[in-house]
Amino acid sequence: MRIHKIIPASDGKLPFMFGGDSAHVSEWPKNPEGQDLLLLFTIDCKVARQRLSRTDLPARGFLHVFSTYDSNEYFIDSITVDEVQLQKGMASYTCVVHADDVEPIKSPRPSIPLQLADFEETTIDDDELSVLSLIADEAPAGALIPVQLSVDYNFLCQIYSSDFPAPFEDALYMTDGVGYLLINKQIGGGKSDGCFFVQVA
Score class of each variant (00 low, 15 high):
residue 103 E to H: 12
residue 4 H to I: 03
residue 114 L to C: 08
residue 52 L to G: 05
residue 10 S to V: 09
residue 189 G to F: 04
residue 122 T to S: 14
residue 25 V to E: 01
residue 15 P to G: 02
residue 195 C to T: 08
residue 126 D to R: 11
residue 160 Y to C: 09
residue 196 F to Y: 13
residue 37 L to E: 01
residue 91 A to T: 10
residue 85 Q to A: 13
residue 105 I to K: 03
residue 194 G to K: 01
residue 93 Y to T: 04
residue 90 M to R: 15
residue 8 P to R: 04
residue 92 S to K: 14
residue 185 K to A: 03
residue 160 Y to H: 11
residue 147 V to P: 09
residue 28 W to N: 06
residue 156 L to T: 02
residue 86 L to Y: 07
residue 191 K to D: 08
residue 52 L to I: 03
residue 48 A to E: 01
residue 161 S to F: 07
residue 60 R to Q: 13
residue 182 L to M: 14
residue 12 G to H: 09
residue 153 Y to V: 03
residue 76 I to A: 10
residue 195 C to Y: 10
residue 23 A to H: 01
residue 117 A to K: 03
residue 69 Y to D: 03
residue 72 N to G: 10
residue 67 S to Y: 00
residue 32 P to G: 05
residue 35 Q to A: 12
residue 104 P to Y: 03
residue 19 G to D: 00
residue 18 F to N: 02
residue 42 T to Y: 00
residue 82 D to N: 15
residue 92 S to E: 14
residue 41 F to S: 01
residue 114 L to R: 13
residue 76 I to E: 12
residue 113 P to Y: 03
residue 72 N to K: 15
residue 150 S to A: 12
residue 53 S to A: 15
residue 36 D to N: 15
residue 169 E to D: 12
residue 68 T to R: 15
residue 145 I to E: 04
residue 26 S to K: 13
residue 58 P to Q: 06
residue 13 K to D: 13
residue 51 R to T: 11
residue 120 E to K: 14
residue 131 V to S: 14
residue 156 L to M: 10
residue 102 V to S: 03
residue 103 E to R: 13
residue 27 E to H: 13
residue 177 G to K: 06
residue 92 S to P: 12
residue 66 F to S: 00
residue 184 N to M: 03
residue 58 P to L: 04
residue 7 I to Q: 11
residue 108 P to E: 06
residue 91 A to M: 15
residue 154 N to I: 02
residue 200 V to K: 11
residue 6 I to D: 04
residue 22 S to P: 06
residue 19 G to E: 00
residue 34 G to H: 05
residue 14 L to E: 02
residue 135 I to D: 08
residue 91 A to C: 11
residue 127 D to T: 13
residue 146 P to I: 01
residue 40 L to G: 08
residue 174 M to W: 14
residue 38 L to E: 00
residue 89 G to H: 06
residue 167 P to G: 06
residue 167 P to C: 06
residue 93 Y to M: 05
residue 136 A to I: 05
residue 68 T to S: 14
residue 9 A to K: 07
residue 1 M to R: 09
residue 23 A to S: 06
residue 98 H to E: 07
residue 82 D to Y: 06
residue 64 H to I: 01
residue 99 A to Y: 00
residue 52 L to P: 09
residue 113 P to C: 05
residue 40 L to F: 03
residue 110 P to L: 01
residue 121 E to K: 11
residue 106 K to F: 10
residue 199 Q to E: 14
residue 121 E to T: 13
residue 57 L to P: 05
residue 160 Y to N: 09
residue 160 Y to A: 13
residue 106 K to M: 11
residue 104 P to I: 01
residue 54 R to Y: 15
residue 11 D to F: 14
residue 121 E to I: 14
residue 97 V to G: 04
residue 145 I to P: 08
residue 42 T to S: 07
residue 130 S to N: 07
residue 108 P to Y: 05
residue 89 G to R: 07
residue 140 P to C: 07
residue 45 C to V: 00
residue 143 A to H: 09
residue 56 D to G: 05
residue 118 D to G: 06
residue 183 I to F: 03
residue 124 I to D: 11
residue 179 G to N: 05
residue 119 F to N: 05
residue 21 D to V: 00
